[in-house]
Computed example of a mutant assay.
Amino acid sequence: MKILHTSDWHVGRTFHGRDLLREQESVLSGLADTVADERVDAVVVSGDLFDRAVPNAEAVAVCARVLKRVRAAGAQIVVTPGNHDSAARLGFLGAFTEAGGLHLRTRIADLAEPVLLADEHGPVAVYGIPFLEPETARQALGVPDAKGHAGVLAEAMRRVKEDLAGRRGARSVVLAHAFVTGGEPCESERTIAVGGVQDVPGGVFSGVDYAALGHLHGQQTLAEHLRYSGSPVAYSFSEARHHKQVWLAELGPEGLAGVEKRALPVPRALSTLSGELEDLLVAPEHEDVADHFLSVTLTDRVRPLDALRRLQSRFAHAVHVEWRPEGGRTGELRFAERVRGHTDEEVACCFLEDVRGERPGERELGLLREAFAAAAREETA
């Protein structure tokens, strides 16, 4: 049996204010081609199908079209909610969609009730563990003393393995959305720490043939049977060097027979640039990134005005700019220390110098003095 492992679709997410629905639909629709070409039996989505608990209508429509294409290509689909999803909303029509091959495992009470698939070697039990918020899950699971994510996931896996023990000969796949020890995070993931504890030891997932993890956005292998698929689209510049892929896991008669990568298309590459604004606007060597999403660090001595708009005149998809003057301060201000003993005028002048990189001119000084005098008169009155 072939299982295509994906996660963290985050349908509806934006990138520095830019809508990504077109890019997301393009990449995710390609999963249907992989299903058809590889004769995939099941596609699993390990959490964060949507980016918000209440996705907008456009995001729901994109997700519905993608799932329909994947199902039409011949694969069963199993989905569990992540920390971005609303489990209740996602699972609302679960009892009806299952008949059509879309299996939504969203309830804690059902985590030990697998989706049962079968091939020529017998049954495969696919368990979906929804994201477990510790405070809620420890009560729902009847383990009030469980500690953090590790405690509630350990109880969830105990129940899974207890059910699996009664299914003689069944191979097993578990979907879980968690931060497993050894995983490498990036900037686009929302923390799931509660009381400072978020890590789950990998040993919790022993005893199953394949654990399809979600939450971390970089594809990773923690053990042969324990993997993160990563997000299908980059959601931060910390992912600029990621090669977005999915895992294709094959279960043979004795369990996991092998796992291979399958590359995903890149709808728009991510790049970073650094330099002075006027140079960046004309330098020919930057032409190859003109169509990329860009994060730009400006090194001008004086902060350029309207920098992002000017950059976008050449780089239409520049979305992020920061100013780090070469050889100058990077913006760390110890305000209380620096203003002690200074007049209001001196403080204002220092502020303007910090944010612009140069002191105010005589005309600006005159305006500042007028403003301070007016404020003093108002205060006296």
Rank of each mutant, 00 (worst) to 15 (best):
L49E: 05
D37Q: 07
V246T: 13
D344V: 09
A88M: 14
H317M: 05
V296P: 06
L256E: 01
S271I: 09
R138P: 05
A348S: 08
F50S: 12
D209Q: 01
T181A: 12
D306L: 14
P360V: 13
A109D: 10
S231L: 04
L368M: 15
D306R: 02
E189S: 13
F96K: 03
F92V: 07
E379W: 09
R309Q: 10
P144N: 02
Q198Y: 11
G17S: 04
G82I: 01
F179E: 02
E287V: 12
T191I: 01
H243R: 15
P325E: 13
T6K: 02
S86V: 03
D85V: 02
L111F: 06
E113S: 06
L175G: 03
F237E: 15
G218M: 07
A263K: 06
G202E: 08
E113G: 03
L308M: 11
E58S: 15
A374Y: 04
R303F: 12
A156C: 12
M157D: 03
L116I: 12
G202F: 01
H217D: 10
V233D: 08
T80A: 05
A36H: 08
A140S: 01
A32T: 02
L21K: 05
L104E: 04
C350P: 01
A269I: 02
T299P: 08
R22V: 10
T181E: 06
W323V: 11
A99H: 13
L367K: 04
P232S: 06
E189V: 14
G183K: 09
G166V: 14
Y127A: 08
E326H: 09
P81Y: 10
L164E: 07
C186E: 13
A109W: 00
V62I: 11
A193S: 06
G331Q: 14
D199S: 07
P265T: 11
R340T: 03
L264G: 12
L31A: 02
S172W: 13
R69I: 02
G182N: 02
V44T: 13
P267A: 14
S295H: 10
H215V: 03
N56Y: 04
